Amino acid sequence: MKTNRRIIHIDMDCFYAAVEMRERPELANRPLAVGGSSERGVLTTCNYPARAYGVRSAMPVFKAKELCPQLLIVPVRFDLYRAASKAVREIFARYTDMIEPLSLDEAYLDVSHIKRPGSEIAAEIRATIEQEVGLTASAGIGPNKLIAKVASDWNKPNGQCLVAPSKVPLFMQTLPVRRIWGIGPKSSARLAAHGIETCAQLQTRDKTWLAQEFGSFGLELYDLCRGIDERPVQANRIRKSLSNERTFAQNLESLEECREQLIRQHHEMMEDLRKISPDRQIAKLLVKLKFSNFRRTTAEMPGQQPEIPHYLKLLNEAWGRSGEPVRLLGVGVRFAETTNNTEQLELGI
């Protein structure tokens, strides 16, 4: 059954950097980034003058300085960002209880019940955020979460984009497949190898082919590349874990191959961790394997620091339980639980 929803995705513009510029207006027109200042550190985010030089979030500091020698890097101040996030979320709550935080700087809002155009609601929310919190936001409005999230990036910064249900098929035609949630660099490269770079091209492949290439996710892709997304907005969702998993077209035959792949996936997971849950306390580290005989195993350990040596140790443990070739490898963290739901929800907007 197809649902009839109106979803708004709000995405704050260069959130951490914007908060810093709000506090220090003299920084507004100079290249600015937030993150670690050491050469081995990475950037959490940067403002638009810095992006003009090619500087991006999750970029190593040394690389950012090569691109923009005059870049000013300020330390992360989570208390300040949480306060701004809380203020923005309180504005959302004036319109709907159906709010799904994704991170400190973005959220889905289900406004299906409001007898007003979604674009009008989004514009009013954005104007209120700017007036009361002193920050700008961009918005996407669509019939589901996929469309709304993609659309919110269409007219950044400080803009919005509406995709009406009747316009979804046309909207998806030229959309790059990498814009679909769940399609990362590896999957995008695999599709490109088959000559598939747009959703229109992906729509020419049937479910059997997609399932062979991507497993159960391939069946989801069949709908997603057509702009069909039935996921509801999950109000008050608290993320319990974060992981990076990959199923391989060709099995990993040795422990050394698994180690090389784990290091790559660990890097991707750390980028997600910095973006999605930068200040959540970690309780456990885990490595998951699925062998060629489809047997699954997970090795985990208590720990707060998701460092490579710990994951290599867990990989050795998991691999030793079988030694068979590996068809799936995953690395992840489990977050510490909290009994204070209000405090936890303030981590996202």
Rank of each mutant, 00 (worst) to 15 (best):
G142W: 04
E90Y: 01
Q173N: 13
L43W: 02
M301V: 13
T247Q: 02
K313Q: 12
E307P: 01
E300L: 08
T339K: 14
A28L: 12
G215S: 08
R226T: 06
Y16M: 03
Y222D: 12
D229A: 10
F291I: 07
L146V: 04
N293Q: 10
Q160V: 00
G118N: 07
H310I: 02
S187V: 13
P69G: 09
P49Y: 08
S38D: 15
C258R: 00
F214R: 01
P302G: 07
A249K: 13
S322V: 02
L315F: 05
R280K: 15
P101N: 06
A50R: 02
N155L: 07
S322R: 12
D153A: 15
E300D: 14
L289K: 05
E271G: 13
L262Y: 02
A283I: 05
L314Y: 02
E343V: 05
A164P: 00
T44V: 13
P101T: 10
I141R: 01
Y95I: 10
L175T: 11
R274K: 13
L135N: 01
R296D: 10
I73C: 08
L162I: 08
G195D: 08
R22V: 06
A93M: 12
N340K: 09
L202T: 05
I73D: 05
E245F: 05
Y222E: 08
E268L: 15
K240Q: 12
R56N: 12
M269V: 02
L71Y: 03
F78R: 02
A318G: 10
R334C: 11
L43K: 04
Q281D: 09
A33W: 00
P278K: 04
G227A: 06
G184P: 04
E337C: 11
V55Q: 10
F294M: 12
A211G: 03
Q131C: 10
A58N: 14
V19N: 03
I183N: 10
L328F: 04
E307K: 13
E100R: 08
Y108S: 11
G142T: 07
G142Y: 07
M12H: 07
E100D: 09
A17H: 08
Q344E: 15
L329G: 08
I196Y: 04
D272E: 12
C46L: 10
T44L: 15
G303T: 12
I196K: 02
A17P: 03
D13G: 11
W319K: 06
N316G: 13
P302W: 03
F335P: 02
I228L: 07
Y311A: 04
P302L: 11
K63F: 01
G320Y: 11
I196R: 03
M59S: 09
N244I: 01
G215R: 01
T339Y: 02
N340H: 12
G218Y: 04
W209S: 11
L289D: 04
V74H: 05
I228D: 02
L224W: 00
S152Q: 10
H113R: 14
V19I: 15
K186Q: 14
P232C: 09
L191V: 01
L32D: 03
Y222N: 11
A122L: 06
L202R: 08
I91V: 14
A50S: 09
R51W: 07
T204P: 00
L109T: 03
A58H: 09
A235W: 00
P49E: 10
V74P: 05
G215E: 07
K86D: 13
G195Y: 09
S103A: 11
R334S: 14
R178S: 14
L273T: 05
E106N: 09
L315W: 00
E317Q: 15
L27N: 06
L286Y: 15
